[in-house]
């Protein structure tokens, strides 16, 4: 394998890592800041993908589908938080696991009733539907690069929101001491509703924008869920910066693992997680 192909694999790894960040960012918010173990995160991803598919075939345009889809996922997130999730903040993690696992089953069944059990494809938007030739046999789809760009923007936006705005300050304060924040006269309930809705919307958005690449199929959320948790744990719970670093690390490890150590490629990500946790039990950017 020559140098050019190593560079392309590097690009593959970075690009996959950014994609992981996109999917995991919502989980970082919900799991990291609110402390809710949200197994249903993958379901929100799936809902996003199916929304993109049905809205895109309705409107004929993925961009419109996403613009309509995001408010829908925000509403879904707020409704869920208001109806069920907020009753579980004070409970043990085990209850949260049971609740959100139940939500997975509910969402799968609803998906089956509303959209059926078939595999669907969403066409890549016309404007981005071409590839850049890299070698005589290989070319790179522009849509992948587009997604990478969107991920970078999103990461930057999240960083600004959490580190540089008043809302972000309240979110950070709320994550370290909920009761104190409340006694200072800040409506913490509303903030939590907002964070949860944002988390759901991020997962949904990831599903939507990724739908042309991943296709849309039953149980698609289950596949991303585990690797999302790995990202959050390696990055350090609650750290957006950490999630970004962990995503890139996993993207690269997975890509080069498949190339150089194909026999154990499925394990590498988890070995990486174990090593990081031994070295830094709170994750790369977590507070011990």
């Amino acid at each position: 394998m020559d140098f050019a192909f190593l560079l392309i694999q590097l690009l593959n790894g970075l690009q996959y890592g950014l994609l992981l960040f996109l999917v995991a960012s919502g989980l970082t918010l919900i799991f990291g800041i609110m402390g809710i173990i949200n197994l249903a995160h993958g379901s929100f991803y799936m809902v996003g993908a199916y929304l993109a598919w049905s809205l895109a075939s309705l409107t004929g345009n993925l961009l419109t589908a996403i613009l309509v889809g995001i408010p829908l996922t925000v509403v879904l997130g707020m409704a869920l938080e208001w109806l069920v999730i907020r009753r579980f903040y004070e409970r043990d993690h085990l209850y949260q696991v049971l609740l959100t696992y139940g939500l997975i089953l509910v969402f799968e069944e609803l998906r089956s009733m509303i959209w059926g059990d078939d595999v669907h494809g969403v066409p890549v938007p016309e404007l981005l539907s071409y590839s850049i030739p890299l070698t005589d046999t290989l070319s790179y789809p522009v849509y992948r690069l587009f997604i990478s760009g969107v991920c970078l923007l999103l990461a930057f936006g999240l960083y600004l929101l959490i580190q540089r705005t008043r809302l972000g300050m309240m979110i950070r304060a709320g994550s370290s001491n909920r009761d104190m924040v409340q006694s200072l006269g800040i409506n913490i309930k509303l903030i939590y509703t907002l964070i949860f809705a944002m988390g759901v919307a991020l997962a949904g958005f990831a599903g939507m924008i990724n739908a042309p690449l991943s296709s849309v199929f039953p149980n698609m959320g289950g596949q991303v869920l585990i690797v999302c948790f790995v990202v959050v744990v390696i990055g350090g719970i609650g750290s957006v910066k950490g999630a970004m670093a962990a995503s890139l690390l996993i993207g690269l490890a997975d890509t080069f693992g498949q190339v150089f150590l194909p026999q154990v490629a499925g394990m590498i990500v988890y070995v990486l997680m174990a090593v990081v946790l031994v070295w830094r039990p709170a994750g790369l950017f977590g507070k011990a």
Binding site: M1, F5, Q9, N12, L138, D254, T255, F256
Partner: peptide, 12 residues
């Protein structure tokens, strides 16, 4: 379902 790394390898 992340095939990119192996597709790159096939191309090489």
């Amino acid at each position: 379902v992340e095939f990119q790394a192996l597709l790159t390898e096939i191309a090489s």
